[in-house]
Design a protein around this nucleic acid. Structure first.
Length: 290
DNA sequence: TTGGGTCAAGGAGTC
DNA sequence: GACTCCTTGACCCAA
């Protein structure tokens, strides 16, 4: 069986889990509280809407609690939002919706700059704390490997060594291939070094295949989920023909989905659809779904 | 209310 | 060396 989902916001409702603010506004604790509350409410709204339509995956926006890992964050967020997060986690479990988060390009735990590496670990611990409070053990924190810095083996070693002591983070972490630097074969190698799974992104793979077909790439990535005993996750998107290579299209081309489905060969998978059209792009799976 | 400038952060590629 | 792009656009201010 294939399950599917989308990231961060719902254009139909509309609702988002990603409302944020500027650093300069962080001093206003009441404003931050109100904004976090809106994001949490958005998550509840989206979860219920998704479940009614059989959508079993959702990626929470990284800004659910904006600046949560920043030293200037004005209050004890796990204490103040813990009850709401536990409620939402229980709701997601009862609705059978699997959750994820995806820290952005600034999160580089393997950076040669110690300060960058430290801040990156803080951000990963924030995502870990969110899922620990929610109690969703099958949640996933998706991360790219970061820069190569002119020495690929050294970059991978730094990344693995930085994360190896982070046992809590590793319970949720999964590594994703990217379109320029790290091919799926290298990602799987690093992931296996940490005992964590790998996520294959079809569009990144098309731009950075390392000589592997889509089917061969899936053969490498999908078995990495066996150690955790969870359903494999993959990312699916289509190229926007009017933009730079790698730019996500508004929807998923039926041809891209057909190719992906054939490469999967009937294997159980959770498919995160990365499209500008968010939930609207899920109609590729079931016309009229949304 | 709207349009345009701006926003914490890393790294790679282009010119 | 400056600029651009990436995730997930959203905030904020001037008019």
């Amino acid at each position: 069986m294939i399950r599917y989902g989308y990231p961060a916001q719902n254009l139909t409702l509309p609702a988002t889990t990603n409302r944020t603010l500027r650093l300069a506004s962080l001093t206003d604790a009441e404003k931050v509280r109100a904004l976090v509350w809106e994001n949490l409410l958005g998550l509840e709204t989206i979860l219920r809407w998704n479940a009614e339509r059989g959508i079993r995956l959702f990626r929470i926006g990284q800004g659910l609690i904006p600046f949560a890992s920043h030293p200037a964050f004005p209050y004890d967020w796990p204490e103040e939002h813990g009850d709401d997060l536990r409620y939402l986690g229980a709701l997601a479990r009862s609705l059978e919706v699997r959750l994820s988060m995806h820290p952005g390009q600034f999160i580089n735990p393997g950076s040669p700059n110690p300060e960058t590496a430290r801040r990156s670990l803080d951000e990963l611990r924030y995502a870990t704390r969110v899922f620990d409070l929610m109690g969703n053990s099958d949640a996933v924190v998706v991360l790219h490997l970061g820069g190569a810095h002119g020495d690929r083996p050294a970059a991978i070693t730094r990344f693995v060594e930085a994360l190896r002591p982070e046992e809590d983070v590793l319970r949720y972490l999964a590594l994703e291939n990217d379109e320029r630097i790290w091919k799926i074969e290298e990602i799987v190698g690093a992931a296996r070094g940490l005992g964590i799974p790998a996520i294959l992104d079809n569009l990144h793979h098309a731009l950075n295949p390392g000589g592997l077909s889509l089917g061969e790439a899936l053969d490498l990535a999908l078995p990495t989920w066996e150690t955790r005993g969870e359903r494999p996750k993959v990312h699916l998107s289509s190229q926007d023909p009017t933009k730079r290579p790698g730019a996500h299209a508004h929807s998923i081309e039926a041809e891209d989905w057909a190719v992906f489905l054939e490469a999967l060969g009937g294997r159980e998978t959770d498919v995160m659809v990365e499209a500008k059209g968010k939930e609207l792009a899920l109609s590729v799976f079931r016309p009229g779904l949304v």
